[in-house]
Design a protein around this nucleic acid. Structure first.
Ligand SMILES: [Mn+2]
Ligand SMILES: [Mn+2]
Ligand SMILES: [Mn+2]
Ligand SMILES: [Mn+2]
Lengths: 218, 218
DNA sequence: AAATATATTTAGATAAGACTAAAAATAGGT
DNA sequence: ACCTATTTTTAGTCTTATCTAAATATATTT
């Protein structure tokens, strides 16, 4: 149906639309795709021809309904494969992204459907991100960044914002993983660092860390 | 490492080398790849530059050691994925080939290794073809075509030569599957058709069928 | 051995996706 | 409102993989 490159652009636009509802700028997309603005303009024109995006010169792009549907399908596959790699093939959560970037482009509805079933219709990928179902529906959890919590507030660690290997391995090393209870004991106004309680253990973390950990409070 | 297209050419050359040990001709390769001879020449030159094949103008191609190793890796992945699809994801043996054609190009040594382990190091794919191990070794079974058997000879059905959907569904419909015992009851000299005994059942099959079924005798 | 047929390679073109450099449009500051 | 900085688009080039048409080499007949 669509090329790898087209699918990757759609995915990138989908993710950037959160931040730029008015339309995703060429430069933002160029940065996300690690390419040049001129290449982005070329591709946007092509996607526009194919009615995957709505585009007016100098005004940025938005996904059309078809574009959004396609992007969600790719994201669904990406996250299902990440789940598969961790749950069935002994991958660590920091090793799955690059392989999933390849697997997400495999074209077979039956494969996606059967994989989903084989995995027991998982709701979240290894990084806490929601896995869209076959109809493209997914629940956006009411999560906040740990850095937004104040002293004495608590919740459960439910996701990571940064899913780079470096960050994930840091979390592993410090025994921070999804599902664990976290309570803010102290918050340093000066540098934004925190003293947290995680499973009976006290830990001091920098703002860079708390800015990349999602917490579900309630 | 190598492009999808390069990998597909290597695989095709590998398979054709059985038949054309002296060197695979441009035309044979063009037919196998469903492309034009001129395109084949272009690609062969590129593969030759990369030392994946040995090529002299007008003399056909052979795989180099590196080319052979690469081809076997792709075939290993293809067959492992086919096994996965049938054993874990409820695919029928006639549905797996096209998806495996995509999956065979995923680059991740860990993925291949872990998939192999997850599947229990299978030795044969759903069509009876051997699955190379991580070192590229695989056993070539001593099988013959059913059409080569004479009256009263018997053996076990161990593979298919043609693995088209049409042929495989024909076998399904007639309850012929790998592992079943087959005995030749009659052989018609005129049209090459056979009367066979398969699991207490008598069945008349044309030469086209017996020419595409592998049997292990002993 | 020459003529003819077939196989293979070369030449030139195309499409996708990327790039650099330059031009044009938009946004901000005074 | 104008000047400047930034963003975006255009123009032209490159690489990969394909194609058609034409040229050349090899194989087969006579
Ligand atoms: Mn990922
Ligand atoms: Mn993820
Ligand atoms: Mn196959
Ligand atoms: Mn097979």
């Amino acid at each position: 149906m669509f090329s790898f490159s087209e699918e990757n652009y759609l995915k990138a636009i989908f993710h950037l639309e959160r931040k730029y509802q008015a339309g995703v700028s060429t430069n933002a997309l160029a940065e996300e795709m690690e390419t040049k603005a001129s290449s982005v303009t070329d591709m946007i024109k092509k996607l526009s021809e194919k009615e995957l995006v709505i585009y007016k010169k100098y005004q940025g792009v938005k996904l059309s309904e078809l574009g959004k549907k396609t992007a969600i399908e790719v994201i669904r596959k990406h996250r299902l494969w990440e789940y598969f790699l961790v749950e069935k093939l002994n991958f660590n959560w920091d090793e799955v992204h690059d392989v999933a970037e390849q697997l997400e482009h495999i074209k077979s509805e039956k494969l996606t459907r059967e994989l989903d079933e084989f995995l027991g219709f998982p709701k979240r990928d290894p990084h806490g991100d929601p896995i869209p179902d076959a109809e493209g529906n997914f629940s956006v959890a009411n999560k906040v960044l740990l850095s937004e919590l104040g002293k004495t507030e608590k919740g459960i660690c439910v996701g990571v914002k940064d899913s780079s290997s470096d960050f994930l391995r840091f979390l592993d090393k410090n025994n921070i993983s999804l599902g664990k209870k976290i309570k803010v004991l102290e918050k340093e106004a000066f540098d934004g660092s925190m003293l947290i309680l995680i499973e009976e253990r006290q830990l001091r973390i920098s703002q860079l860390i708390s800015n990349n950990l999602y917490i579900k409070t309630q």
